[in-house]
Every structure is written in C-alpha cells, then in structure tokens.
C-alpha cells in the first residue's frame, strides 16, 4: 500500500505525514506540487503548512498547482484523499470539499490538543473509529473557521458529510462546531486538526495514562489502508 504526500512551497507537516504513514505500516511516497506524476500511489495526503504564505487565501494558490489536476482526477475516481489543515483549505479551494475556511473568530492563531467527536465512520479515513468516538489530536491554525451558507450546512449535515465536530471548545468559530467534512462518496476527507501529530508514543497529546502518549491520529491512516484493502 503506497500513500503519497504532496509537498507544496510552504508545506510544514509533509514529513510528519510521511512518518505517520510509515507508522501505520504503509509505504510513504513523497510527491512534488510542480509535477503531474502521482507515482502510482493508492492514496494521497495534502499536508498542513502555509503554502505560498497563505497569500490570496489559505490554500488558494496551491489549489491551482500542476499536480492538483491529477489529484482532482484521482479523487473523482475514488482514490482516498486526506486534506489536513492547509490541505483541507486546498480541497475546499479546489471544490473537492464544501465550505470555506476563514480567519479564527478569536483573532489569534490557536494551538491546542483538541477533542473531536467522530460523526461519520463511513469514509476512507475514519472507518477504524466507532461512531461518536471521542478523540484528541493537535490543532494549530490561524484560518480554521469553517463556514458555508445555512442551506449548504443543512445539505451536508443531511448527507452525513460532517465527519468531525469540535468537542468542549470550538477553537475558531467554525459554524455548527464542524472540524472536518467529506465529499459525497466519502473518499475525500478534510479537517483542520492534525492526525499526523498523534501517531507515535512520546510525541502526541497528553492522555490520562501518560504525557504525550495520544495516538488517536494513527487510525486515520490505518483506516485508509483498510479502505484500500476492501476494494
């Protein structure tokens, strides 16, 4: 199983995503934004960071990168695609996911270990969770406010495409506490928090058991492997 991670100018978390894929027992494949080659990968991750310095709008310029035509194509054919933070912003800008992300309502960058509720387990990236499961993974963003029109929000809620909701604290003013959404088919998922930073003992969020022992993010990647094996 080969899972690619696309590096854009200004990507920050591409190496963490590659590492998370390896920890999930898949083969990580580094991909480059300026290429048109997906290198035969089975799934894709668009990582976090500040591509093009967030100029114009977060993710807007990266959404027009050369490799994005192949990403859009592959997503349309059902390939699992995960957008994390800046990658989520790119997927909304590329119209693969609904809604948009604006500056945090609190007016500051926010970094915290964030509790989420898994609302939809019938996706390529969440099938290893149980419905309603509470997980904790890091969140760090300045433009994480998820917004869409009321009609659009009603539609995606009705279609079961709200995949994650913030629990306890809504850190950025996201409407209806939405932290992550999927496309209709469930192969494309985007979220603001960072599963790739919660995949290894000693480096994740604190848990009741021990400091930095949270590995809830690993299930995202093992879910994708499971989805691919089921095909």
């Amino acid at each position: 199983m080969r899972i690619g991670v696309v590096t854009f100018p200004g990507s920050l978390d591409d190496r963490d995503a590659l590492r998370a894929i390896r920890l999930a027992d898949a083969e990580p494949v580094a991909l480059w934004h300026g290429s048109h080659d997906l290198d035969g990968v089975d799934a894709l991750v668009l990582p976090g960071g500040f591509s093009y310095g967030d100029y114009l709008r977060a993710g807007a310029i990266a959404a027009h990168a050369p490799i994005m035509s192949e990403v859009v194509d592959a997503a349309g054919k059902g390939m699992p695609v995960l957008g994390i933070c800046n990658g989520f912003q790119m997927l909304t800008e590329a119209h693969l996911l609904p809604g948009g992300l604006i500056r945090n309502d609190v007016g500051t960058f926010v970094r915290r270990d964030q509790a989420l509720r898994v609302e939809q387990t019938d996706t390529a990236w969440t099938n290893g969770f149980t419905h309603g499961q509470e997980i904790v993974i890091p969140l760090k963003n300045g433009e994480g406010g998820f917004i869409a029109s009321d009609e659009e929000l009603d539609r995606i809620e009705g279609e079961g495409r709200v995949v994650f909701r913030y629990l306890g604290v809504n850190p950025n003013g996201s409407l209806r506490d939405i932290a992550g959404v999927s496309n209709e088919r469930g192969n494309v998922v985007g979220l603001m928090p960072h599963p790739e930073h919660a995949t290894e003992l000693g480096f994740g969020p604190d848990t009741r058991d021990a400091m930095r022992s949270g590995t809830d993010g690993l299930t995202f990647f093992t879910s994708a492997i499971r989805a691919l094996q089921a095909v």
Binding site: L56, R57, A60, H64, T92, E93, P98, G99, G100, I102, I147, A148, S149
Partner: peptide, 8 residues
C-alpha cells in the same frame, strides 16, 4: 475563479 472564493 481565482481572485475570490464565492463561498466566503
């Protein structure tokens, strides 16, 4: 197409 995002 590029300068604005009609969602926001």
């Amino acid at each position: 197409d590029l300068l604005s995002n009609s969602v926001i």
